[in-house]
Design a protein around this nucleic acid. Structure first.
Length: 411
RNA sequence: GUGGGCGUAGCUCAGCCGGUAGAGCUCCUGGUUGUGGUCCAGGCGGUCGCGGGUUCGAAUCCCGUCGCUCACCCCA
């Protein structure tokens, strides 16, 4: 056979793995400062959880889930997103009895059966944060600002923040009916593809290029004008906090996220560096989801960012240049002495590599150079410590003296 | 899922009016009997994505298939 990683999956090689680790550290620090705690849920759950949580009618549930049966015939699904799992865990562990809100963040693999492209995979990594148990608008704003800061520190460059509010499912449903009715009344002026999707995705008509459609949309009703007073106030509060923080955003009434559970605030960060997949991360409020999943009425808000997309937008990072020491062997029977020396140097906190590949001494020095060693310890009948930058070399009479010399030159 | 482009050494690619595989980089060795970064020489390394067809003969032509990629859709 010719083994290959399955379609839509990939191996993370060291250069990339290091960048991912850097992003993970940024997230840990940033979210930790705001009181978010790390946590994990399983990578698969009962299929029912996603069907109910994400929504039966969504693309994710209808065609993108990796579903399988266990040996007892239970239907399980590799998680396509995490909010449903988070809510399940919240209910299962009685987190409503903890001081609210409960703030959590996570990092892990997710799975969607899609046609892979740049920035789109079947197994991908999401980094996310959730705040459950309070509908305070400051949580919405806090999370949005945290994601903005995270993206900035990750080096993704310019982003566009789209923001909207969906109100309650009732207002949204009523609005969509109103919009459909409006569009049906002017069907003749609409483009063909807008007409084809009129019933399942009427909002799409807002971003059509078609002149006739655009003309029609000028007078179309907007969801934001149909929000209840409470929801409108909530949205105004969120915006005020973002304004205070100086974060730029665009109100986009056509922003619909692909999951059914959103209420009130929704947002999405986009990058021009990603091509067809412009979304770096996004999220929103889901005040009814936990109750829908059988828990007590509990509001929640959160986001997820695509790790691969963030890294793609950030471009090639500079690999951290950490200094190192190389232990070379001038003769094969110096191996035990060299091994001992390497261990002692590591005990002292140095980053140490040694000859373990049967290279000639010349090859070993070349290797020392390649890994960027500051000093090379050459073990033979005597021990020499070479400063790789100056090329100078000093002789030690024993291991202790060699260690002292290394400390002087540095590793 | 639909349509376009591509698939030759670890990497980047050349070869493609059919005659049975090359370069650069990387890696290893030597030039320097125990010494790097430059230079020189040599070497390792390829089921030419896979399967089938046409042909005396296919990396080169044809069909299928898989993979990558771009677009639509949707999203992280």
């Amino acid at each position: 056979m010719n083994p290959k990683a399955p379609r839509g999956t990939f191996d993370v090689l060291p250069a990339d793995a290091r960048l991912r680790l850097q992003l993970l550290k940024i997230a840990d620090e940033l979210l930790g400062q705001a009181g978010y705690e790390p946590f994990e849920t399983p990578v698969f759950e009962d299929t029912e959880l996603f069907a109910r949580g994400v929504g039966e009618s969504t693309d994710i549930v209808q065609k993108e889930m990796f579903t399988f049966e266990d040996k007892a015939g239970r239907s399980l699904t590799l998680r396509p997103e995490n909010t449903a799992g988070v809510c399940r865990a919240y209910v299962e562990h009685g987190m409503h009895k903890l001081p609210q809100p409960v703030k959590l963040w996570y990092w892990g693999p997710f799975f969607r059966h899609e046609a892979p492209q740049a920035g789109r995979f079947r197994q991908f990594t999401q980094l996310g944060a959730e705040a459950l148990g309070s509908d305070d608008p400051s949580l919405d704003a806090e999370l949005i600002l945290l994601l903005a800061e995270l993206l900035d520190r990750a080096g993704v460059g310019e982003t566009r923040l789209r923001l909207s509010s969906l109100g309650t499912p009732e207002t949204r449903a009523a609005y969509l009916d109103e919009l459909r009715a409006y569009l049906h009344g002017r069907e003749d002026a609409l483009s063909e593809d807008v007409r084809a999707r009129l019933d399942d995705n009427p909002l799409r008509a807002f971003d059509a290029d078609h002149p006739g459609t655009r003309a029609v949309m000028q007078g179309a009703p907007h969801l934001l004008d149909r929000l209840s007073a409470d929801d409108a106030d909530h949205f105004a509060d969120v915006r005020a906090l973002l304004d205070d923080a100086g974060l730029a955003y665009e109100i986009d009434p056509t922003l619909v996220r692909g999951l059914d559970y959103y209420t009130r605030t929704v947002f999405e960060f986009e990058s021009p560096r990603l091509g067809a997949q412009s979304a770096l991360g996004g999220g929103g409020r889901y005040d009814l989801l936990i109750e829908e999943l059988g828990g007590p009425p509990t509001p929640g808000v959160g986001w997820a960012a695509g790790v691969e997309r963030v890294l793609l937008a950030a471009g090639e990072g500079e690999p951290a240049a950490d200094s190192r020491i190389y232990v070379a062997l001038a003769k094969p029977d110096a191996a035990r002495e060299g091994f001992r020396l390497a261990r002692r140097l590591r005990d002292e906190g140095f980053r140490v590599e040694m000859e373990q590949a049967g290279r000639s001494l010349k090859g070993q020095l070349r290797q020392a150079d390649r890994i960027g060693a500051r000093s090379t310890v050459i073990v033979g009948d005597v021990i020499d410590v070479k400063d790789m930058r100056s090329g100078e070399q000093r002789r030690a009479s024993d291991a202790d003296e060699a260690l002292a010399l290394v400390r002087e030159v540095g590793g």
